[in-house]
Amino acid sequence: MRGIFVTLLAVNVLLLVWGFIAREPAVVELAPIKAFKYGGVAKLELLSEASGVNPPVSLQRSTAIDQPPTVDSLQDNKPLCEMVGVFKDQEQAGLLLERLEAIDIVAEIKEVELPAGSRYQIYLPPAPSRKAALRKLTELQAKKVDSYIIPKGNLENGISLGMFSQEVLAKDHLKKMQGIGLEPKMNVIERTYWEIWVMLAPGEGKKMSSLAWSRVLEGLNDIERRQNFCLDVAS
């Protein structure tokens, strides 16, 4: 009995499965796709295709640098002269000058002023009189301040509080004097010195050979030759 029931159940299951397989699938119809119309939209146009419009130009940054006009040196047109020196005195320079004149070389003795550096003076402004300067000097020396009265010049009757070769030292001393109640000032003194040279006129050095130079400089020790811009040498 149980076997018959199982057999019938299996047959029913097979029939059910067959029914699903044999059934035709339903056809699904898709709605037709309508073409989209770009109504009211203007046609795109490239800049290069547009009439009357130039294509964009790439901008290039100029690498050229404006150079200021060259300024010629004031000495460019000034001639060079042969210089001989330095001589210890006018007499020694005169000896060379005589030798040059003997061979028809135009030259002249020149005294050249050259810078010798600066000096820095710390001082108190001039007193109205010599007596007033002496009274002030006495007060300073009582405080053991090294000082003296300036005897002449633009600062006559002023009180010098020190002379220095370096500006930094002078400024330090200035602050020190201010610290004891004084009101000093600093005066910068430009120093110079003089050298004696014999300067040949423009172009005269070209007339001199090595032999000629050796003869005119004979016996003159520690004398050198150089070229420099002419200093109003007589021609």
Rank of each mutant, 00 (worst) to 15 (best):
G205M: 06
L169K: 13
K207V: 06
R135D: 15
M208S: 03
R99I: 04
V53H: 04
A127Y: 08
S235R: 09
L95R: 08
A22K: 11
S118D: 15
D89S: 07
D222A: 08
C81D: 11
I180K: 00
K37E: 15
I159W: 03
V71K: 11
Y120R: 04
L114M: 12
L14I: 14
G179S: 09
K110W: 00
V28T: 10
Y123W: 10
S51V: 11
V27Q: 05
D146W: 08
K176E: 15
A116Q: 12
L74S: 12
L200C: 06
G153L: 05
G40K: 08
P55M: 09
T138V: 12
P69H: 07
E111V: 15
G94P: 01
F5T: 06
S48M: 06
E24Q: 09
Y123F: 15
S147G: 05
S51G: 08
M186R: 05
Q121I: 11
W194E: 07
E204F: 04
A26P: 01
S210L: 08
V41S: 07
L74M: 09
V168T: 14
R135V: 14
E190R: 11
W194V: 09
V188A: 02
L100C: 04
M177T: 08
E82T: 15
Y193C: 03
T138S: 13
W213G: 01
N221C: 04
L47T: 11
E204V: 01
A26N: 10
N54I: 12
L100Y: 03
F5W: 06
S58Q: 13
K34I: 13
G203K: 09
G203Y: 00
P68K: 13
L30M: 11
L134I: 13
I65S: 10
D232P: 02
S118F: 15
L96Q: 01
G153A: 04
N54Q: 14
Y123M: 07
V233Q: 02
V86K: 03
V86I: 10
V13P: 02
E82W: 11
R99Q: 08
V84P: 01
I103R: 05
S129T: 15
R99F: 05
N154G: 11
L134Q: 14
K78W: 05
Q141Y: 02
T70A: 13
I150K: 03
K175P: 01
E156A: 14
L169T: 08
G203E: 10
R2C: 06
T70P: 00
